[in-house]
Write a protein that binds this DNA or RNA. Structure first.
Lengths: 225, 225
DNA sequence: CTAGTATTCAAACGTTCGTTTGAGGCGATT
DNA sequence: AATCGCCTCAAACGAACGTTTGAATACTAG
Protein backbone atom coordinates (compact mmCIF):
# COMPACT_ATOMS: atom_id res chain seq x y z
CA UNK A 1 0.00 0.00 0.00
CA UNK A 2 1.23 3.44 1.04
CA UNK A 3 0.21 5.49 -1.95
CA UNK A 4 2.09 8.74 -2.26
CA UNK A 5 -1.05 10.87 -2.06
CA UNK A 6 -2.46 9.20 1.01
CA UNK A 7 0.54 9.93 3.14
CA UNK A 8 0.82 13.26 4.90
CA UNK A 9 2.52 15.81 2.62
CA UNK A 10 6.24 15.45 2.78
CA UNK A 11 8.04 18.23 4.53
CA UNK A 12 11.16 17.71 2.52
CA UNK A 13 9.59 17.93 -0.93
CA UNK A 14 7.61 21.04 -0.07
CA UNK A 15 10.49 22.77 1.63
CA UNK A 16 12.71 22.16 -1.40
CA UNK A 17 10.06 23.55 -3.73
CA UNK A 18 9.55 26.65 -1.59
CA UNK A 19 13.23 27.46 -1.28
CA UNK A 20 13.84 26.70 -4.96
CA UNK A 21 11.09 29.14 -5.91
CA UNK A 22 12.71 31.85 -3.83
CA UNK A 23 16.29 31.26 -4.92
CA UNK A 24 15.47 30.79 -8.60
CA UNK A 25 13.77 34.16 -8.46
CA UNK A 26 16.67 35.88 -6.72
CA UNK A 27 19.60 34.22 -8.47
CA UNK A 28 18.28 32.50 -11.57
CA UNK A 29 18.48 28.81 -12.34
CA UNK A 30 22.16 28.58 -13.06
CA UNK A 31 22.99 30.96 -10.27
CA UNK A 32 21.31 28.69 -7.73
CA UNK A 33 23.50 25.77 -6.68
CA UNK A 34 22.09 22.64 -5.13
CA UNK A 35 24.33 23.15 -2.13
CA UNK A 36 23.04 26.54 -1.07
CA UNK A 37 19.51 25.44 -1.94
CA UNK A 38 19.56 22.32 0.21
CA UNK A 39 21.40 24.10 3.03
CA UNK A 40 18.81 26.88 3.11
CA UNK A 41 16.00 24.31 3.01
CA UNK A 42 17.58 22.39 5.84
CA UNK A 43 17.69 19.14 3.90
CA UNK A 44 20.47 16.89 2.71
CA UNK A 45 22.28 17.64 -0.53
CA UNK A 46 21.13 14.38 -2.06
CA UNK A 47 17.47 15.04 -1.29
CA UNK A 48 16.83 16.92 -4.52
CA UNK A 49 18.04 14.06 -6.68
CA UNK A 50 16.19 11.57 -4.56
CA UNK A 51 12.83 13.34 -4.66
CA UNK A 52 12.95 14.95 -8.09
CA UNK A 53 15.60 13.07 -10.02
CA UNK A 54 17.66 16.05 -11.16
CA UNK A 55 17.93 19.80 -10.96
CA UNK A 56 16.10 20.20 -14.26
CA UNK A 57 13.25 18.07 -13.01
CA UNK A 58 13.09 20.26 -9.90
CA UNK A 59 12.78 23.36 -12.07
CA UNK A 60 9.93 21.73 -13.93
CA UNK A 61 8.22 20.78 -10.69
CA UNK A 62 8.47 24.34 -9.41
CA UNK A 63 6.61 25.60 -12.45
CA UNK A 64 4.03 22.85 -12.59
CA UNK A 65 3.03 23.27 -8.97
CA UNK A 66 1.68 26.77 -9.56
CA UNK A 67 1.25 27.18 -13.28
CA UNK A 68 -1.24 24.39 -13.84
CA UNK A 69 -3.74 25.71 -11.29
CA UNK A 70 -3.18 29.28 -12.45
CA UNK A 71 -3.98 28.54 -16.07
CA UNK A 72 -6.89 26.36 -15.02
CA UNK A 73 -8.27 29.38 -13.19
CA UNK A 74 -7.73 31.55 -16.25
CA UNK A 75 -9.77 29.19 -18.37
CA UNK A 76 -12.42 28.89 -15.68
CA UNK A 77 -12.81 32.66 -15.46
CA UNK A 78 -13.29 32.85 -19.19
CA UNK A 79 -15.81 30.05 -19.12
CA UNK A 80 -17.83 31.79 -16.45
CA UNK A 81 -17.75 35.09 -18.27
CA UNK A 82 -18.95 33.51 -21.46
CA UNK A 83 -21.68 31.56 -19.71
CA UNK A 84 -22.78 34.79 -18.11
CA UNK A 85 -22.83 36.58 -21.49
CA UNK A 86 -25.20 33.96 -22.89
CA UNK A 87 -23.73 33.80 -26.38
CA UNK A 88 -22.97 37.48 -26.77
CA UNK A 89 -19.37 38.48 -27.41
CA UNK A 90 -17.39 39.60 -24.37
CA UNK A 91 -16.04 43.08 -23.88
CA UNK A 92 -12.26 43.21 -24.59
CA UNK A 93 -11.88 44.89 -21.24
CA UNK A 94 -13.32 41.85 -19.47
CA UNK A 95 -11.12 39.40 -21.33
CA UNK A 96 -8.02 41.36 -20.44
CA UNK A 97 -9.03 41.48 -16.82
CA UNK A 98 -9.49 37.73 -16.78
CA UNK A 99 -6.00 37.40 -18.20
CA UNK A 100 -4.31 39.78 -15.85
CA UNK A 101 -5.98 38.93 -12.57
CA UNK A 102 -4.82 35.35 -11.96
CA UNK A 103 -1.24 36.53 -12.23
CA UNK A 104 -1.58 39.62 -10.13
CA UNK A 105 -3.48 37.92 -7.35
CA UNK A 106 -0.30 36.08 -6.49
CA UNK A 107 1.50 39.35 -5.88
CA UNK A 108 -0.45 39.91 -2.69
CA UNK A 109 0.62 36.57 -1.30
CA UNK A 110 3.45 37.91 0.80
CA UNK A 111 3.81 35.01 3.20
CA UNK A 112 3.49 32.12 0.79
CA UNK A 113 5.78 31.94 -2.17
CA UNK A 114 3.13 33.25 -4.55
CA UNK A 115 4.86 36.54 -5.12
CA UNK A 116 8.20 34.88 -5.55
CA UNK A 117 6.76 32.57 -8.13
CA UNK A 118 5.00 35.20 -10.15
CA UNK A 119 8.14 37.27 -10.42
CA UNK A 120 10.09 34.19 -11.34
CA UNK A 121 7.55 33.46 -14.02
CA UNK A 122 7.80 36.93 -15.48
CA UNK A 123 11.53 36.50 -15.79
CA UNK A 124 11.29 33.11 -17.38
CA UNK A 125 9.37 34.26 -20.45
CA UNK A 126 12.74 35.36 -21.78
CA UNK A 127 14.80 32.55 -20.33
CA UNK A 128 17.78 31.60 -22.50
CA UNK A 129 17.66 27.93 -21.49
CA UNK A 130 15.83 26.25 -24.34
CA UNK A 131 14.21 23.28 -22.55
CA UNK A 132 12.79 25.60 -19.91
CA UNK A 133 11.27 27.89 -22.51
CA UNK A 134 9.75 24.91 -24.25
CA UNK A 135 8.26 23.69 -21.00
CA UNK A 136 6.74 27.07 -20.22
CA UNK A 137 5.31 27.20 -23.71
CA UNK A 138 3.69 23.82 -23.27
CA UNK A 139 2.22 24.67 -19.89
CA UNK A 140 0.78 27.88 -21.29
CA UNK A 141 -0.48 26.61 -24.61
CA UNK A 142 -4.04 25.64 -23.60
CA UNK A 143 -4.77 28.93 -21.85
CA UNK A 144 -3.23 30.92 -24.68
CA UNK A 145 -5.41 29.26 -27.28
CA UNK A 146 -8.42 29.98 -25.14
CA UNK A 147 -7.58 33.67 -24.83
CA UNK A 148 -6.85 34.02 -28.49
CA UNK A 149 -10.28 32.67 -29.35
CA UNK A 150 -11.95 34.91 -26.78
CA UNK A 151 -10.18 38.01 -28.09
CA UNK A 152 -11.00 37.13 -31.67
CA UNK A 153 -14.67 37.09 -30.72
CA UNK A 154 -14.39 40.27 -28.68
CA UNK A 155 -12.60 42.14 -31.48
CA UNK A 156 -14.17 40.77 -34.65
CA UNK A 157 -13.14 43.73 -36.76
CA UNK A 158 -9.42 43.28 -36.08
CA UNK A 159 -7.21 41.42 -38.51
CA UNK A 160 -5.80 38.16 -37.28
CA UNK A 161 -2.12 38.93 -37.59
CA UNK A 162 -2.57 42.34 -36.02
CA UNK A 163 -4.29 40.71 -33.07
CA UNK A 164 -1.43 38.25 -32.71
CA UNK A 165 1.02 41.11 -32.39
CA UNK A 166 -1.11 42.92 -29.89
CA UNK A 167 -1.47 39.83 -27.77
CA UNK A 168 2.27 39.60 -27.93
CA UNK A 169 2.60 43.15 -26.66
CA UNK A 170 0.11 42.46 -23.90
CA UNK A 171 2.02 39.44 -22.84
CA UNK A 172 5.23 41.43 -22.70
CA UNK A 173 3.76 44.18 -20.60
CA UNK A 174 2.40 41.73 -18.08
CA UNK A 175 5.58 39.68 -17.95
CA UNK A 176 7.78 42.70 -17.45
CA UNK A 177 5.52 44.18 -14.81
CA UNK A 178 5.55 40.94 -12.89
CA UNK A 179 9.28 40.47 -13.22
CA UNK A 180 10.10 44.01 -12.20
CA UNK A 181 12.24 44.13 -9.14
CA UNK A 182 13.42 47.00 -7.01
CA UNK A 183 16.13 47.60 -9.57
CA UNK A 184 13.75 49.39 -11.86
CA UNK A 185 14.56 52.93 -10.94
CA UNK A 186 11.36 54.06 -12.61
CA UNK A 187 9.32 52.79 -9.75
CA UNK A 188 11.23 55.00 -7.37
CA UNK A 189 8.72 57.68 -8.26
CA UNK A 190 5.68 55.89 -6.86
CA UNK A 191 4.47 55.38 -3.35
CA UNK A 192 6.00 52.26 -1.80
CA UNK A 193 2.73 51.03 -0.38
CA UNK A 194 1.19 50.95 -3.86
CA UNK A 195 3.85 48.79 -5.42
CA UNK A 196 2.19 45.52 -4.62
CA UNK A 197 -1.42 46.61 -4.46
CA UNK A 198 -2.86 44.07 -6.87
CA UNK A 199 -6.18 45.84 -7.36
CA UNK A 200 -4.57 49.16 -8.22
CA UNK A 201 -2.13 47.43 -10.51
CA UNK A 202 -4.89 45.44 -12.15
CA UNK A 203 -6.77 48.60 -12.97
CA UNK A 204 -3.67 50.36 -14.25
CA UNK A 205 -2.66 47.41 -16.39
CA UNK A 206 -6.16 46.85 -17.72
CA UNK A 207 -6.54 50.51 -18.66
CA UNK A 208 -3.22 50.49 -20.48
CA UNK A 209 -3.75 47.18 -22.23
CA UNK A 210 -7.35 47.82 -23.23
CA UNK A 211 -6.40 51.09 -24.85
CA UNK A 212 -3.47 49.47 -26.62
CA UNK A 213 -5.56 46.59 -27.83
CA UNK A 214 -8.17 48.93 -29.27
CA UNK A 215 -5.66 51.30 -30.82
CA UNK A 216 -6.43 52.45 -34.36
CA UNK A 217 -4.24 51.01 -37.08
CA UNK A 218 -1.45 53.14 -38.44
CA UNK A 219 -1.10 53.90 -42.12
CA UNK A 220 1.80 51.64 -43.06
CA UNK A 221 0.37 48.67 -41.24
CA UNK A 222 -2.96 48.95 -43.02
CA UNK A 223 -1.15 49.33 -46.31
CA UNK A 224 1.08 46.31 -45.83
CA UNK A 225 -1.66 43.99 -44.68
CA UNK B 1 54.03 55.53 -27.20
CA UNK B 2 51.63 53.11 -28.88
CA UNK B 3 48.33 54.32 -27.51
CA UNK B 4 45.58 51.74 -27.67
CA UNK B 5 43.27 53.93 -29.77
CA UNK B 6 45.86 54.79 -32.40
CA UNK B 7 46.49 51.21 -33.30
CA UNK B 8 44.39 49.48 -35.92
CA UNK B 9 41.38 47.78 -34.31
CA UNK B 10 42.30 44.42 -32.95
CA UNK B 11 40.86 41.44 -34.69
CA UNK B 12 40.92 39.42 -31.52
CA UNK B 13 39.06 41.91 -29.36
CA UNK B 14 36.36 42.46 -31.94
CA UNK B 15 35.92 38.82 -32.71
CA UNK B 16 35.51 38.05 -29.01
CA UNK B 17 32.90 40.79 -28.64
CA UNK B 18 30.96 39.59 -31.68
CA UNK B 19 30.88 35.97 -30.63
CA UNK B 20 30.09 36.90 -27.03
CA UNK B 21 27.13 38.94 -28.22
CA UNK B 22 25.80 36.00 -30.15
CA UNK B 23 26.37 33.34 -27.52
CA UNK B 24 25.13 35.47 -24.63
CA UNK B 25 21.92 35.92 -26.58
CA UNK B 26 21.54 32.24 -27.37
CA UNK B 27 22.69 30.70 -24.10
CA UNK B 28 22.74 33.44 -21.49
CA UNK B 29 25.74 34.64 -19.53
CA UNK B 30 26.15 31.67 -17.26
CA UNK B 31 25.32 29.27 -20.03
CA UNK B 32 28.19 30.58 -22.14
CA UNK B 33 31.56 29.15 -21.14
CA UNK B 34 34.82 30.80 -22.01
CA UNK B 35 35.92 27.64 -23.73
CA UNK B 36 33.15 27.43 -26.29
CA UNK B 37 33.28 31.19 -26.72
CA UNK B 38 36.97 31.33 -27.48
CA UNK B 39 36.82 28.23 -29.64
CA UNK B 40 34.01 29.67 -31.74
CA UNK B 41 35.86 32.96 -32.01
CA UNK B 42 39.01 31.15 -33.10
CA UNK B 43 41.13 32.69 -30.36
CA UNK B 44 43.00 31.27 -27.42
CA UNK B 45 41.24 30.54 -24.17
CA UNK B 46 43.37 33.04 -22.30
CA UNK B 47 42.58 35.84 -24.73
CA UNK B 48 39.45 36.99 -22.89
CA UNK B 49 41.29 37.47 -19.63
CA UNK B 50 44.18 39.11 -21.40
CA UNK B 51 42.08 41.63 -23.33
CA UNK B 52 39.19 42.23 -20.93
CA UNK B 53 40.45 41.09 -17.55
CA UNK B 54 37.58 38.76 -16.68
CA UNK B 55 34.34 37.33 -17.96
CA UNK B 56 32.33 39.96 -16.10
CA UNK B 57 34.36 42.72 -17.68
CA UNK B 58 33.68 41.16 -21.08
CA UNK B 59 29.95 41.25 -20.40
CA UNK B 60 30.21 44.91 -19.52
CA UNK B 61 32.20 45.62 -22.67
CA UNK B 62 29.58 43.89 -24.82
CA UNK B 63 26.91 46.21 -23.48
CA UNK B 64 28.95 49.39 -23.57
CA UNK B 65 29.95 48.93 -27.18
CA UNK B 66 26.37 49.27 -28.41
CA UNK B 67 24.35 50.79 -25.60
CA UNK B 68 26.26 54.04 -25.27
CA UNK B 69 25.83 55.02 -28.92
CA UNK B 70 22.20 53.85 -28.90
CA UNK B 71 21.22 56.00 -25.96
CA UNK B 72 23.21 58.90 -27.35
CA UNK B 73 21.11 58.63 -30.48
CA UNK B 74 17.92 58.50 -28.43
CA UNK B 75 18.85 61.76 -26.72
CA UNK B 76 19.89 63.31 -30.01
CA UNK B 77 16.55 62.44 -31.64
CA UNK B 78 14.71 64.07 -28.77
CA UNK B 79 16.90 67.15 -28.95
CA UNK B 80 16.21 67.52 -32.66
CA UNK B 81 12.49 67.06 -32.21
CA UNK B 82 12.36 69.69 -29.51
CA UNK B 83 14.47 72.12 -31.50
CA UNK B 84 12.09 71.58 -34.39
CA UNK B 85 9.06 72.22 -32.19
CA UNK B 86 10.47 75.60 -31.15
CA UNK B 87 9.33 75.53 -27.55
CA UNK B 88 5.98 73.85 -28.10
CA UNK B 89 5.33 70.55 -26.35
CA UNK B 90 5.90 67.42 -28.43
CA UNK B 91 3.18 65.01 -29.43
CA UNK B 92 3.28 61.84 -27.26
CA UNK B 93 3.27 59.88 -30.46
CA UNK B 94 6.55 61.47 -31.56
CA UNK B 95 8.25 60.87 -28.23
CA UNK B 96 7.31 57.22 -28.30
CA UNK B 97 8.61 56.86 -31.81
CA UNK B 98 11.93 58.39 -30.78
CA UNK B 99 12.10 55.86 -27.98
CA UNK B 100 11.21 52.83 -30.02
CA UNK B 101 13.14 53.46 -33.21
CA UNK B 102 16.76 53.30 -32.02
CA UNK B 103 16.09 49.85 -30.63
CA UNK B 104 14.19 48.51 -33.60
CA UNK B 105 16.64 49.78 -36.17
CA UNK B 106 19.09 47.21 -34.92
CA UNK B 107 16.68 44.42 -35.74
CA UNK B 108 17.28 44.92 -39.45
CA UNK B 109 21.01 44.49 -39.03
CA UNK B 110 21.09 40.85 -40.03
CA UNK B 111 24.74 40.58 -40.94
CA UNK B 112 26.27 42.54 -38.09
CA UNK B 113 25.48 41.55 -34.55
CA UNK B 114 22.95 44.33 -34.12
CA UNK B 115 19.99 42.00 -34.00
CA UNK B 116 21.75 39.68 -31.65
CA UNK B 117 22.52 42.53 -29.34
CA UNK B 118 19.06 43.99 -29.28
CA UNK B 119 17.53 40.67 -28.41
CA UNK B 120 20.17 40.15 -25.76
CA UNK B 121 19.33 43.55 -24.36
CA UNK B 122 15.63 42.78 -24.17
CA UNK B 123 16.39 39.69 -22.19
CA UNK B 124 18.72 41.46 -19.82
CA UNK B 125 16.11 43.85 -18.45
CA UNK B 126 15.03 40.97 -16.25
CA UNK B 127 18.46 39.49 -15.64
CA UNK B 128 18.80 37.86 -12.21
CA UNK B 129 22.49 38.71 -11.91
CA UNK B 130 22.55 41.81 -9.75
CA UNK B 131 25.73 43.55 -10.97
CA UNK B 132 24.57 43.22 -14.56
CA UNK B 133 21.20 44.78 -13.79
CA UNK B 134 22.94 47.61 -11.99
CA UNK B 135 25.21 48.21 -14.96
CA UNK B 136 22.29 48.29 -17.38
CA UNK B 137 20.50 50.70 -15.09
CA UNK B 138 23.48 53.02 -15.07
CA UNK B 139 23.93 52.93 -18.81
CA UNK B 140 20.26 53.71 -19.31
CA UNK B 141 19.80 56.35 -16.65
CA UNK B 142 20.58 59.48 -18.70
CA UNK B 143 18.29 58.55 -21.58
CA UNK B 144 15.52 57.51 -19.20
CA UNK B 145 15.57 60.84 -17.39
CA UNK B 146 15.43 62.59 -20.71
CA UNK B 147 12.37 60.63 -21.85
CA UNK B 148 10.59 61.10 -18.59
CA UNK B 149 10.95 64.86 -18.89
CA UNK B 150 9.80 64.81 -22.51
CA UNK B 151 6.74 62.75 -21.68
CA UNK B 152 5.87 64.93 -18.73
CA UNK B 153 5.82 67.89 -21.09
CA UNK B 154 3.88 66.00 -23.76
CA UNK B 155 1.26 64.78 -21.26
CA UNK B 156 0.92 67.66 -18.80
CA UNK B 157 -2.50 66.55 -17.59
CA UNK B 158 -1.28 63.16 -16.41
CA UNK B 159 -0.35 62.56 -12.81
CA UNK B 160 3.27 61.86 -12.14
CA UNK B 161 2.96 58.44 -10.56
CA UNK B 162 0.53 57.30 -13.22
CA UNK B 163 3.02 58.33 -15.88
CA UNK B 164 5.77 56.41 -14.13
CA UNK B 165 3.69 53.25 -14.30
CA UNK B 166 2.85 53.75 -17.93
CA UNK B 167 6.48 54.30 -18.82
CA UNK B 168 7.13 51.09 -17.00
CA UNK B 169 4.54 49.29 -19.12
CA UNK B 170 6.00 50.80 -22.28
CA UNK B 171 9.42 49.65 -21.33
CA UNK B 172 8.15 46.16 -20.73
CA UNK B 173 6.39 45.91 -24.04
CA UNK B 174 9.47 47.01 -25.92
CA UNK B 175 11.79 44.76 -23.97
CA UNK B 176 9.63 41.73 -24.46
CA UNK B 177 9.11 42.39 -28.13
CA UNK B 178 12.84 42.68 -28.65
CA UNK B 179 13.63 39.62 -26.61
CA UNK B 180 11.02 37.48 -28.28
CA UNK B 181 12.52 34.52 -29.99
CA UNK B 182 11.05 31.90 -32.23
CA UNK B 183 9.80 30.12 -29.14
CA UNK B 184 6.88 32.47 -28.80
CA UNK B 185 4.25 30.40 -30.47
CA UNK B 186 2.05 33.43 -30.79
CA UNK B 187 4.12 34.72 -33.64
CA UNK B 188 3.46 31.54 -35.53
CA UNK B 189 0.33 33.23 -36.77
CA UNK B 190 2.11 35.99 -38.68
CA UNK B 191 3.89 36.03 -41.98
CA UNK B 192 7.56 35.08 -41.55
CA UNK B 193 8.83 37.89 -43.74
CA UNK B 194 7.18 40.47 -41.47
CA UNK B 195 8.80 39.29 -38.30
CA UNK B 196 11.83 41.51 -38.55
CA UNK B 197 10.45 44.34 -40.60
CA UNK B 198 11.47 47.20 -38.35
CA UNK B 199 9.22 49.80 -39.96
CA UNK B 200 6.12 47.65 -39.67
CA UNK B 201 7.00 46.78 -36.12
CA UNK B 202 7.70 50.39 -35.26
CA UNK B 203 4.25 51.38 -36.45
CA UNK B 204 2.56 48.53 -34.63
CA UNK B 205 4.41 49.22 -31.42
CA UNK B 206 3.86 52.97 -31.61
CA UNK B 207 0.14 52.53 -32.21
CA UNK B 208 -0.17 50.18 -29.27
CA UNK B 209 1.96 52.24 -26.91
CA UNK B 210 0.46 55.59 -27.83
CA UNK B 211 -3.03 54.31 -27.16
CA UNK B 212 -1.91 52.78 -23.87
CA UNK B 213 -0.15 55.92 -22.78
CA UNK B 214 -3.23 58.03 -23.49
CA UNK B 215 -5.66 55.59 -21.89
CA UNK B 216 -8.31 57.14 -19.66
CA UNK B 217 -7.87 56.54 -15.96
CA UNK B 218 -9.96 53.88 -14.34
CA UNK B 219 -12.15 54.60 -11.35
CA UNK B 220 -10.14 52.98 -8.59
CA UNK B 221 -6.89 54.54 -9.72
CA UNK B 222 -8.35 58.02 -9.76
CA UNK B 223 -9.83 57.43 -6.35
CA UNK B 224 -6.62 56.17 -4.80
CA UNK B 225 -4.43 58.93 -6.20
C1' DC C 1 69.58 44.08 -36.91
C1' DT C 2 68.38 44.37 -32.31
C1' DA C 3 65.83 45.44 -27.99
C1' DG C 4 61.68 45.57 -26.05
C1' DT C 5 56.89 45.34 -25.89
C1' DA C 6 52.48 43.30 -27.13
C1' DT C 7 50.14 39.28 -28.05
C1' DT C 8 49.32 34.27 -28.42
C1' DC C 9 49.71 29.70 -26.87
C1' DA C 10 49.35 24.99 -24.39
C1' DA C 11 49.08 23.51 -19.95
C1' DA C 12 47.79 23.56 -15.48
C1' DC C 13 45.51 25.52 -11.11
C1' DG C 14 42.06 25.47 -7.63
C1' DT C 15 37.18 25.66 -7.12
C1' DT C 16 32.52 24.59 -7.75
C1' DC C 17 29.11 22.18 -10.02
C1' DG C 18 25.31 18.24 -10.39
C1' DT C 19 25.12 13.69 -9.37
C1' DT C 20 26.06 9.04 -7.29
C1' DT C 21 27.11 5.85 -3.68
C1' DG C 22 26.43 2.80 0.13
C1' DA C 23 25.72 2.65 4.82
C1' DG C 24 22.42 3.78 8.35
C1' DG C 25 17.86 5.14 10.62
C1' DC C 26 12.93 5.14 10.96
C1' DG C 27 8.16 3.25 10.91
C1' DA C 28 4.75 0.23 9.40
C1' DT C 29 3.50 -4.65 8.44
C1' DT C 30 3.50 -9.60 9.58
C1' DA D 1 10.96 -9.31 17.18
C1' DA D 2 12.19 -9.56 12.49
C1' DT D 3 11.51 -7.64 7.91
C1' DC D 4 10.83 -4.61 4.33
C1' DG D 5 10.38 -0.15 1.89
C1' DC D 6 11.03 4.76 2.37
C1' DC D 7 14.00 8.22 3.49
C1' DT D 8 18.32 10.62 5.20
C1' DC D 9 23.02 11.16 5.60
C1' DA D 10 28.26 12.07 4.96
C1' DA D 11 31.40 11.30 1.54
C1' DA D 12 33.09 10.99 -2.76
C1' DC D 13 32.97 11.22 -8.07
C1' DG D 14 34.12 13.08 -12.53
C1' DA D 15 33.33 16.97 -15.24
C1' DA D 16 33.27 21.75 -16.22
C1' DC D 17 34.11 26.22 -14.81
C1' DG D 18 36.98 30.95 -14.74
C1' DT D 19 41.49 32.13 -14.23
C1' DT D 20 46.68 32.02 -14.06
C1' DT D 21 51.21 30.92 -15.63
C1' DG D 22 55.45 31.07 -18.21
C1' DA D 23 57.33 30.15 -22.42
C1' DA D 24 56.97 31.11 -27.44
C1' DT D 25 55.89 34.22 -31.10
C1' DA D 26 54.79 38.61 -33.66
C1' DC D 27 55.38 43.21 -34.05
C1' DT D 28 57.47 47.92 -33.58
C1' DA D 29 60.81 51.39 -32.58
C1' DG D 30 65.58 52.83 -32.43
Amino acid sequence: MSLRAVKPPHGTRTRILDVAEELFMQLGFEGTSMRVLTTKAGVNLAAVNYHFGSKDALIEAVFRRRLDPMNAQRIKELDELEAQAKGKALEPDAVIRAFVRPGLSHLEDTKGGGRNFIRLLGRTYTEPNKPIRVLIGQLYAPAMERYKKALERALPQMQRDELVWRMHFMFGTLAYTLAATDTVQLIAGCKPEDRYDARLLEDRLTAFLTAGLNAPLKQSVRKAA
